[in-house]
Design a protein around this nucleic acid. Structure first.
Lengths: 190, 190
DNA sequence: CGGAGCGTTGATTAACTTCAAGGGCTGTGG
DNA sequence: CCACAGCCCTTGAAGTTAATCAACGCTCCG
């Protein structure tokens, strides 16, 4: 990694693998996310594009320079890392303890949160799954078949409505939330 | 959290929980590990002691001060955070994709690595599981019973030997490694 | 038309959990 | 000293969840 970068458009992911080919996604990169870290020239996982991706790259050296000169940017980098750490830990809870249904609900809820944030113009638009079924499975530690079935359940329960395989709409946010299994301490999204 | 701290002795863990009481350990704190983070007065998980614990605490304010004055310490904090992030991601792979047997082997391997590091006097000593069966289960996203059974298997296969419930010795490091399921690129411990 | 990629659906199986019982150790109080 | 409770661990049997195996549908594209 000779550069650090920010995702401008498209979707990519961070992946780790086992000997025999099993893989687990350990990070999802959506527009606005940051790739690479100061003080680390090497990363120990694969970065995989899930669609065409546009990056905004910075050469490592001048970026490093910037950090030493502007301590508050360094501060910001720490915060960014902390956020990632928090996210990673939430994901550990999901991977270790949630049921297939809860995993899917949590994933959808995250998609809603991130896409709703993008366009707060009040217009009720259809949302888009950023990943294929297989990729979602990889993210959630499930198989592609299980993902398909669980999404089917959310559909049949009337919580989600699908336009096509990727485009959907949340019919019942309340029940989606409930299905995540999360502690709902003040977790009001809208 | 009015302070940050370093673990001097004892074992503690970071835990996250779901509505209905299920919990997942998201971090293990052994001697030399660091608790708390600059720029975060609040943490969103529970810190639980698994034994008597001695901490070396620093008030947050002067510590924060230190960071702004000594940029290389700030640098060090970033690195620390990056290490944690790496560890968290390895754990995500474990939680999402490893079998019960692989999880246990990975855990034991980690214990060996950390305890071997402590005493490099060359004396072949018995190692100690830092956690109870229940806590291990919590760490690995398993049940206590499964942990017990899988440890039993490692014993019966002659890979481990137990002095009592906690104290053990690795008879066959090679096979323990193999049982973790990890890619074994240059992963020589001894 | 034929094939590739992606998703759905059904049947079967395997892994792990859950439920249940009991063993061994420790500390406490009669 | 012994009885007993509590804790941790082990073991067995039954139950469930999600994985695996397999087939098929749809759409895009040459």
């Amino acid at each position: 990694m000779k550069f650090v970068a920010s995702v401008v458009s498209g979707v990519a992911s961070l992946n780790k693998g086992l000997e025999d080919g099993r893989t687990q996604m350990v990070g999802l990169l959506l527009p606005s996310d940051f790739i690479g870290h100061p003080g680390r020239t090497r990363i120990e996982f694969d970065v995989v594009a899930s669609s065409d991706v546009t990056l905004c790259c910075f050469d490592r050296a001048p970026f490093q320079q910037l950090l030493t000169e502007m301590p508050h940017i360094s501060q910001r980098m720490i915060e960014l890392a902390m956020d990632e750490l928090d996210a990673a830990r939430d994901w550990m809870l999901l991977l270790g303890r949630k049921t297939a249904g809860e995993k899917i609900a949590t994933f959808i809820e995250m998609v809603v949160r991130r896409q709703h944030f993008q366009r707060r113009d009040g217009i009720k638009v259809d949302l888009t799954l950023p990943l294929s079924r297989g990729d979602i499975a990889n993210y959630l530690g499930l198989t592609l078949e299980t993902v398909s079935r669980q999404i089917g359940i959310l559909k049949s329960e009337g919580i989600l409505q699908f336009e096509d395989k990727r485009r959907f709409r949340v019919v019942d946010m309340e029940r989606l939330q409930a299905a995540t299994g999360d502690d709902d301490d003040g977790a009001v999204i809208f």
